[in-house]
């Protein structure tokens, strides 16, 4: 299991995926396997630290980061792949708090896109109009806008942008504890985003963030987390 020279690659699903949406975790495991990625997973995984840090509990964040970094070192992990936009940003921020102890972090769509380009991941062609919701933590926090869109296009979808997209994307109303602290306000923000989605008349909204998926889930617009859209078209 240990590849001490080259180091291990870890798939880090994030707490929301692991604890609340295990189906998404299963999807990504299959997608990574089909992409020919040799990865390991942790038996016990800790939170990346984003919720406590953004709620003002810096000490708790530092403890979690320290625990995670130690685990990465214990398992000779040189690269972490995650599907959670918040974990992605947070894990990359570790280096700032723990100089020289950071690990390489890659977002799952970067891996998927590489696998498609190399021909390892083969897709059935589908068609239809979809819209893509940029999660704040992936877009404005990490400037990752195009990979998910490129993959959706490679699946055969036509992307219809909402009024606010890319760097000007409108938040789902769930981030940084708003959904749990002020649910009504958060719901109003989600409705605002859904209004934009409806206007595109796309057949579904796809997003890469599990929290955005949960927040935008509603009876009138079909919402899919990225892996749910991808798994259907993998050969």
């Amino acid at each position: 299991m240990f590849k001490l020279f080259k180091g291990n690659t870890l798939y880090f699903p994030g707490c929301l995926t692991k604890k609340v949406y295990p189906e998404i975790e299963d999807n990504y495991k299959k997608i990574l396997e089909k992409s020919g990625i040799d990865f390991i997973m942790l038996e016990q995984q800790f939170c990346c630290g984003s919720p406590p840090l953004n709620a003002g509990y810096e000490k708790d964040f530092l403890k979690l980061a320290e625990k995670n970094l130690k685990t990465f070192e214990d398992y000779s992990i040189k690269k972490v792949i995650t599907n959670c936009p918040a974990c992605y940003g947070m894990l990359k921020e570790y280096e700032k708090h723990f100089p020289k102890r950071g690990v390489k972090v890659e977002y799952i769509t970067t891996i998927v896109l590489k696998a498609i380009k190399k021909g390892k991941l083969k897709l059935k062609k589908v068609s239809g109009r979809v819209t893509y919701h940029d999660p704040c933590h992936l877009g404005r926090y990490a400037q990752l806008y195009e990979d998910p869109r490129t993959i959706l296009k490679k699946m055969g979808y036509t992307i219809i942008e909402m009024q606010d997209h890319h760097a000007q994307s409108l938040c789902c109303g769930g981030g940084a504890g708003v959904a749990s602290n002020r649910k009504k306000l958060g719901d109003k923000m989600s409705e605002e985003r859904l209004k934009q989605a409806k206007k595109t008349r796309a057949k579904m909204l796809v997003t890469t963030c599990p929290l955005c998926t949960a927040r935008l889930d509603n009876p009138s617009v079909k919402v899919k987390e990225f892996s749910q859209a991808l798994i259907e078209v993998i050969k």
């Binding site: 704040c136 404005r140 708003v178 306000l185 923000m189």
Partner: peptide, 14 residues
Amino acid sequence: KKLYSCTACLACKE
């Protein structure tokens, strides 16, 4: 409560 009106989406910074 007002601190939790902000989702830290950073559209402001943009």
